[in-house]
């Protein structure tokens, strides 16, 4: 089962990014193989509908869970439609490492 965590960098020491559509990177974590990979968010500077585009990327990747700080209304409807679980984490200074530890 694949999980996406929004990240501000491309290493597991990076900070967790609280934005979904405009996050810098997406960290894809597979809890069966314990592998992580980082994908750059190419839509982060797009003028509109970054959330929708990011949600499309999630669907293409075939993830079942997305962890972020919040989701916009368009991203929410989109993720809901494709039965992707949304998880909201609040609080500052969360690292990607911490979240991966909590998932595995």
């Amino acid at each position: 089962m694949k999980t996406v965590i929004t990240s501000s960098g491309k290493t597991t020491d990076s900070d967790f990014d609280k934005r979904f559509g405009r996050a810098d990177f997406f960290c894809v974590f597979d809890n069966e193989t314990n592998e992580t990979s980082f994908i750059e968010n190419i839509h982060k500077d797009s003028s509109n509908a970054a959330g929708t585009k990011a949600a499309e990327v999630m669907v293409e990747l075939g993830v079942s869970k997305v962890i972020s700080g919040d989701f916009g209304p368009k991203a929410k409807t989109m993720l809901e439609k494709f039965d992707i679980q949304m998880v909201i984490i609040q609080g500052d200074g969360v690292k990607i490492n911490d979240l991966i530890k909590k998932l595995s």
Binding site: E80, D83, I84, Q85, M86, V87, Q90
Partner: peptide, 12 residues
Amino acid sequence: NCNSRFTIPSTI
């Protein structure tokens, strides 16, 4: 327990 907020899609 951990204060996270989440949705539960119909597949779970």
